[in-house]
Amino acid sequence: MSRLISNQLSELGRLQWAQDACEELRLKPTGPIATENAWLRIKDVRTLKGRARWLAQSVAEWRELRAMALDIPPRHVLSDIAILGIAQKAPRTVEDLAKSRGVDQRHLHGAHGTALLEAVRKGLAASQQGELSFPATDNDDVDKSMKAAVTLVSAWISELARQTSLDSGLLATRRDIVELLLELPHARLSQGWRADIVGRDIEDLISGRKGLTFKKSDHERGLRLVDIPHMA
């Protein structure tokens, strides 16, 4: 199987890309996550305000620790929807817990229900500290004049990933784009196979040497990178 995959990658001219990507994964630091930050991975968590954020953080941390103890995915312990529902409802009793969105019967009784309500109480107590802010995002580090460039480049990368049958997240993440725009020396898009396939084109796009157009025809449609002629 390894030889077959290697041969296919060689035929596509992507063997070195795959080897470099595997090496990145091999060198990537591993270890336990910070359980107090588990809430940040919940979909739609940024819609929460005030004390609901503290409750989401506390319940998500309990879920993470419980999942680690049972060696199962966190969502098998409690769904994201249930965490959001509990955070918004702030239940004090089992009856209140039962009325929270996403909570089913298995969450209500015994040690499970008791632990959930304790996590809620912990979150309510923590909320007395004041507002719980979200950490700064990658885009916060970019000058306002460049935020449109991040959006534009993201659109181009999505199109390029489609054209080349590559996963857009493997090709370039938002962090990768920001680091390239900030001209950081360790930017992944400025070196290796990513620089060859997308990094240098992005630099040309931002510098004005290239531009994006939308091509629509019977045989092809989508964004296209084109050279911009220099005016004399």
Rank of each mutant, 00 (worst) to 15 (best):
D196H: 10
D218P: 06
D80R: 04
T151C: 08
S58R: 08
I83Y: 03
I86S: 08
I206L: 14
N139W: 03
A187P: 06
S79K: 11
R106M: 04
L78D: 10
W17T: 03
E36N: 15
D80Y: 03
L84G: 07
S2W: 11
D227F: 13
L40M: 08
T164A: 14
T47K: 15
W17I: 01
Q163F: 06
S79D: 05
G211C: 06
S217D: 06
M1Q: 13
A126N: 08
A187G: 11
A52K: 03
G211D: 13
A155C: 12
G13L: 05
W156A: 10
V150Q: 07
H109P: 11
T47P: 07
F134K: 10
T151D: 15
H107E: 00
I86V: 07
S58T: 03
A67R: 07
R26K: 10
D20P: 00
K144S: 13
R200L: 11
S58H: 02
K147N: 03
T173V: 03
V59Y: 00
I81L: 15
R63F: 09
R209K: 12
P91Y: 07
W193A: 02
T35G: 08
K216S: 14
L132E: 00
G199V: 01
G31N: 05
K144W: 09
A115M: 08
A155F: 12
E220A: 15
M146Y: 07
S2K: 12
W193K: 02
G113P: 09
L182A: 05
T30E: 13
E179G: 00
D96K: 03
S165E: 15
D176M: 01
G208Q: 09
L189E: 04
K216L: 12
Q16Y: 04
R14A: 12
E183R: 14
G130S: 02
D227T: 14
L9Y: 05
R209C: 10
L84D: 02
I157W: 06
R194T: 02
C22G: 07
Q16W: 10
S158C: 11
P74M: 00
L27D: 10
T213C: 13
S217K: 10
I206G: 02
K147C: 09
G31V: 06
D44M: 08
G110F: 09
L223I: 04
R41P: 02
D96Q: 02
A34P: 02
K28I: 01
E36R: 15
L9N: 00
G199E: 00
K122S: 08
E11W: 01
D201A: 13
K210R: 14
V59C: 11
R175F: 03
P185A: 12
A115C: 06
R188F: 04
I81H: 03
L27I: 07
D201N: 13
V198D: 04
R121Y: 05
L182K: 15
Q16L: 04
I81E: 13
S58D: 06
A119R: 01
Q88I: 06
I177K: 04
N37S: 12
N7C: 15
G113K: 01
